[in-house]
């Protein structure tokens, strides 16, 4: 069954699915932009996936509360030097008090209070200096990420197989999509081993996004017209 021969309702549904994915890709870009700070720099990605949760947050979701970028440098240098009590007393404590502890304290009742993640003592802060995503968070995110995106790539691959698109693309794009997904997931896991894993994340994420985006666009177009350049005359035996 060719995609173009789907009944109208099915083509509308497939089209809306493709549009939703394209919109989700755009939203994901905004989300990444927000979680990594104002600029999508390699250093910010490294901080998020291969750095400590503390520095990752200061670069990303908590950046608006960081008074100066130099505060992040102070924390980064402290962690690199072994995250000692002395280093905490000499500089990091002041950074925490200036930017974090209003909300991150055991007794805070502010609207945005985070009493379950206090940053008022050396031991509190030290806990968040371990490299890479924390184990529980990593497993949870991997579970959702791999399952959801794996299903999406599979559905798009099946739809693409029913499209009047060259066979090369029908085979290549699913491979690129799953390869990107595996690279991305591997990068998350290996982030705690070394910063080099960030390249797996960025490369894999790029391949995955490109594959999903291109497959969605091709499927969408093929529902309604002959796709320029990549389209093909349907084989009568299909």
């Amino acid at each position: 069954m060719r995609l173009k021969r789907f009944v109208l309702g099915a083509r509308v549904a497939v089209s809306l699915f493709a549009v939703t994915l394209l919109g989700a890709l755009a939203s994901a870009e905004l989300l990444i932009y927000h979680s990594l700070g104002e600029t999508l720099e390699v250093s910010a990605v490294k901080a998020k996936y291969a750095g400590s949760l503390l520095v990752s947050a200061m670069h990303g979701s908590m950046y608006e509360y960081v008074t100066e970028d130099e505060s992040i440098v102070i924390v980064e240098e402290w962690i690199a030097a072994g995250a000692t009590q002395q280093g905490y007393d000499d500089g990091v404590k002041a950074v925490m008090e200036e930017d974090c502890t209003n909300c991150h304290s055991r007794s805070s009742t502010m609207t945005d209070a985070m009493p379950g993640m206090p940053l008022t003592r050396f031991e509190d802060v030290k806990k968040l200096t371990v490299r890479g995503l924390p184990g529980g968070k990593l497993l949870m995110q991997l579970h959702v990420h791999i399952f959801a995106l794996g299903v999406i790539v599979l559905i798009l691959s099946l739809l693409l197989a029913a499209a009047d698109i060259g066979r090369l693309w029908q085979v290549l794009l699913p491979i690129v999509g799953f390869l990107g997904l595996w690279m991305d997931a591997a990068g998350w896991v290996l982030g705690s081993v070394g910063e080099w894993a960030v390249w797996l994340i960025m490369g894999g994420g790029g391949l995955l996004a490109a594959a999903i985006g291109l497959m969605s666009l091709l499927v969408l177009l093929d529902c309604w017209l002959r796709v320029p350049l990549l389209g093909r005359i349907p084989d009568p035996e299909d």
Binding site: E64, Y65, E68, E98, T101, N102, S107, S108
Partner: peptide, 15 residues
């Protein structure tokens, strides 16, 4: 800090 955090630059809660 005021140029980024506004009033928050002067807000210091007790613990």
């Amino acid at each position: 800090g005021f140029g980024k955090k506004g009033c928050g630059a002067a807000c210091h809660l007790a613990e």
